[in-house]
Computed example of a mutant assay.
Amino acid sequence: MLAGMPSLSHQEQQDAADRIHHLMEQGMSSGEAIATVAEEIRTLHKDDRVTVLFDDDDDE
């Protein structure tokens, strides 16, 4: 996971955005809606493995 979030497909990202908008329409603040959806995503993908490679070479 990168920054504590799994890698999501475009459709999963769109679904998350739609869910956030729905929660905000129900009266939830934007920050709370984002946190709620992020926690839902983390729970659904808690056993997923994402490999991240960093290039630490300085190209000066």
Rank of each mutant, 00 (worst) to 15 (best):
M1I: 12
L2K: 07
L2P: 00
A3S: 13
G4H: 06
M5V: 04
M5A: 03
P6I: 00
S7T: 02
L8S: 00
L8M: 04
L8K: 00
L8E: 00
S9H: 06
S9W: 04
H10L: 12
Q11C: 05
Q11D: 09
E12V: 05
E12C: 03
Q14L: 15
Q14E: 14
Q14G: 07
D15M: 11
A16E: 03
A17V: 12
A17N: 12
A17D: 11
I20W: 03
I20N: 05
I20E: 05
H21E: 14
H21F: 13
H21G: 14
H21Q: 15
H22M: 10
H22Q: 14
L23M: 09
L23C: 09
L23S: 06
M24L: 04
E25P: 00
E25D: 14
E25C: 08
Q26R: 07
Q26H: 05
G27E: 03
G27A: 06
G27N: 04
G27L: 04
G27Q: 01
M28C: 02
M28T: 01
S29Y: 09
S30I: 01
E32M: 13
E32R: 12
A33K: 02
A33D: 01
V37C: 10
A38L: 12
E39L: 13
E39H: 13
E40V: 11
I41M: 05
I41Q: 01
T43E: 12
H45V: 04
D47E: 03
D48P: 00
D48I: 00
R49Y: 11
R49I: 13
R49H: 13
R49G: 07
V50E: 14
V50P: 00
T51M: 10
T51E: 11
V52F: 08
V52G: 03
L53E: 11
F54M: 08
F54E: 09
F54A: 09
D55E: 10
D55C: 07
D55A: 07
D56M: 08
D58L: 08
D59L: 11
E60I: 09
